[in-house]
Write a protein that binds this DNA or RNA. Structure first.
Lengths: 206, 206, 206, 206
DNA sequence: CATTAAGCGAGACGGTACGTCCTGTCTTAAC
DNA sequence: GTTAAGACAGGACGTACCGTCTCGCTTAATG
């Protein structure tokens, strides 16, 4: 998807896999250690034992590198975790969503994920392009799972049919996201459970 | 609450009001024009016709400057707007909250506010200290208004008494905030109205 | 000797003697401790417990301050030393001049004098005005003593009458000065004695 | 002779010759135009169209830059001038030295040389390291020429054999240097001729 | 099977901004 | 009216990174 710039596009087949990995590792490590603003391209290159040009050849910006590194990390994690990234369907919507949200709470407080995802979220707030990629590449797949589960619940008569699942899911996701992003309140299992109870009360038919 | 640093702490009584104003104006203008990352302390100083040291004397960072500038802007706006910053109480909770959310939508898309508040929100995501100040100084007062209005609704029997207003308000605020911050969806009056309908359905007694 | 500038000349009668002394002391101490380039007006003021403006009111530059401070120091030294600052006339010109040059060697290596006089000499090299004041106020009186002593020697028939004493004295003074200023060679009693022997051999009648 | 500093020592083979030249030119031009103290590293960099870091990478200080620039200028001048930088030997010592000193007078008053050499001399007075480099790299070669010529004169019986040429040459050089450096008197052909006459009278055998 | 062209590590380069220090002017309150 | 104190506009310092560039080197793939 390289748009035609002035430069002759680099030859992907000759790309050094070893360098790419080293760059991902260095980027994630640095963001975790010193924070995003003090993570520099030079620092990543030095830590990865790589020339700066190798970074500039393949990525357009620090955010780009981190986004890919984080995507890679997420894919690895998915592969390791197996089933965990789907929403269960026990028949009881409340139980199922509570379980998923508890897993989300765990992930949001996992130090391995926290620094880079905060960094990317922040960059995305201010840089629309990064924001949209963060959204489509990282969040969207998860959101779709909620949509699917809510549709199933509608078919089962547990959620009113006129409800738009795409909006309903925000009642579970957004309050948690905001507390995490903006320090508007503490995050806990108790909190997410309450969220689900309040929200489902409104979504269920009378 | 000035913590004892190494420096002798400047004399506030001698501070130049004219410089402060010029710095606020320059900071807000630059963020609007070139974006937060390309807004520099040197740029602010130059535009304000002020020495860099005058900025460093009174603020600790670019984020600090912008936070105060934005607070100042908000206070000005409040003063101009008068009554607009309270939640009306017509007796109909849905109507009242819809009105406030529509005003919020307007503000979030007002170019005068958008750039600086995005910048601050982003900084706050990554810098906890800024995040907490953004929260307590800018958002908290507004949130309290929601709490008050929801309490009144509880007394009027329109909201179930066991609901925690502090959590309930997030159903109105957070989805909108997330769409705005993370480009997770479009923002419109229709959307916020739907939000209120879905949420109140769950909050109201059966 | 304040030339008419735009400013109303300050009132000398109200000048604080205590401040002047403190400034001299601070200036000399700082030059000795950290060297001339790292001696600053602010540093002098702080060390002297004096406002910066007090320095700017009475002196035009750092060099000015130091020049006066050093003059003051020299006058003090003269007063303490009494007779030492005249050239003796024992009748033997060589002996007399050797004695004076040995005293000069001592002074040039006295750490109390070395730092400020090097500083002033250096400033004078590059700043003609300072150079001329250094010359007329500090060196000239001493040079005149040489002229007087050489004239006496001419009257006594120990120096050829056609010799210009003003030039002759440079054979004693300049080589020593250059070695000191420019590190062109070591300084010792033996060296100055040799200088006198070589030079007088040429100045004396055959 | 690179001492082990903390920095990794730049790669000399990759050094930009074009930048070095531009820096020399800018430094000499600025010193001539605005004087040494108002010549800044930033100014040199800007005028040379060079990044500041390029200066800091290769030189340790403003004095360092100027010293090398001046050395380079001198070498250029030597190359252009050819024979002019040796002391002639016509058999008549007085004539030969007078000629050289007249050339020196010319150089000391050549505006191309005056500003930078004053600046370096001044810096050398106050900064021993610079002083010694100024001495060894710029003055020493010329001084050696005097030593050689005086030795030849001793062999020819024109100078007493017990005279140390290294001290004798100071009678020609130092008075002139001091007048130039410290404004202790005017500089002219007549003056240097007199110097030679007075001095040789003492150096010659009876 | 050499040739050649790309990616690579390294790092010098022209720049911009940083945060600190100092300049010389100006203002305030104390004496 | 001088003084101590210190805020101010300005500007240079020396450092850290930016993104571009050029250098030899390794490493496929091709002629």
């Amino acid at each position: 998807m390289v748009t035609q710039s002035g430069k002759p596009a680099p030859d992907t087949t000759r790309r050094s896999e070893r360098s790419r990995r080293a760059i991902y590792d260095a980027a994630l490590a640095l963001v975790a250690e010193v924070g995003y603003p003090r993570t520099t391209i030079e620092g990543i290159a030095a830590r990865a034992g790589v020339g700066k040009q190798t970074i500039y050849r393949w990525w357009g910006s620090k955010a780009d590198v981190l986004l890919e590194a984080f995507l890679d990390l997420s894919h690895q994690a998915s592969r390791e975790a197996g089933e965990d990234f789907v929403i269960p369907d026990t028949g009881d919507l409340a139980t199922d969503i509570k379980a998923v949200l508890r897993a989300t709470v765990d992930q949001l407080t996992d130090p391995r994920f926290e620094a880079p995802s905060r960094a990317l979220a922040a960059e995305g707030v201010v840089n629309e392009e990064v924001g949209r990629r963060f959204m489509t590449q990282l969040m969207e797949p998860s959101l779709q799972l909620y949509v699917d589960r809510l549709r199933a619940a509608q078919r089962a008569g547990q959620v009113r049919p006129e409800i738009d699942p795409r909006i309903a899911l925000e009642f579970f996701i957004s309050p948690l996201a905001q507390r995490w992003l903006q320090y508007t309140g503490p995050i806990s299992y108790e909190y997410t459970d309450t969220l689900v109870d309040y929200a489902l009360y409104g979504l269920a038919p009378r």
